[in-house]
């Protein structure tokens, strides 16, 4: 029998059921760690540390989860905050803020790849942090633009622009 997220959350809140929380961790560890690995530009150790902190924070503050949003969106929101905190400590992580909109410059400007063709992994790393976050959340994890807006704490237009520009750059780099 498989429990829904809401069932598991209720068991955690009512009975402090660590096994129920463990099931939630098992369900979401992969997308969360993958997201954070992308955001940390491939530093899987740091990503795992941030993912662990994300789940611990979720455990501490589970009472504040209102159930209006998906549990996964709520977790991604905590993960983004953990990433921002880490980025404040380590300047190499974040070259620009997640909610910034890149200038009009397209894929043929400064951060143009040197080789003719990149693989997707490499191309994703070349996007700005905001574009990468929006692409990974919306295109890889299936969040709507509105959910991504809540997770990233930025205007809807910024998310849409980052997804569009990010995809445009990826297409250009991958098909060149």
């Amino acid at each position: 029998m498989s429990f829904t997220d809401a069932d598991l959350i209720a068991r955690v809140l009512l009975a402090e059921d660590q096994n129920a929380f463990g099931e939630l961790v098992r369900r979401y560890q992969s997308p969360l760690r993958a997201f954070l690995t992308r955001m940390t530009r491939g530093d899987s150790h740091l990503a795992d540390d941030l993912a662990q902190e994300t789940f611990i924070r979720a455990w501490k503050h589970l009472t504040s989860f209102r159930g209006g949003a998906r549990f996964s969106s709520w977790l991604f929101g905590i993960a983004v905050n953990e990433f921002r905190s880490a980025a404040r400590r380590r300047k190499d992580l974040l070259l620009e803020d997640l909610d910034s909109v890149p200038s009009e410059a397209g894929p043929s400007s400064d951060n143009q790849p040197t080789q003719a063709r990149l693989d997707l992994n490499e191309a994703l790393l070349r996007l700005t942090a905001g574009e990468r976050a929006a692409i990974v959340l919306c295109c890889q994890n299936g969040l709507s633009h509105d959910e991504a807006r809540l997770v990233l704490g930025c205007p809807l237009g910024t998310v849409k622009t980052n997804v569009l520009r990010g995809k445009e750059k990826l297409r250009c780099w991958l098909t060149k």
Binding site: Q18, F21, G22, V25
Partner: peptide, 21 residues
């Protein structure tokens, strides 16, 4: 490209680190 990341003890580490609620 969004491949599944194996747990490899991650869940156990998280559960071990959980503070009392």
């Amino acid at each position: 490209q969004d491949a599944y990341i194996d747990d490899h003890g991650f869940t156990r580490r998280v559960l071990t680190a959980l503070p009392r609620r």
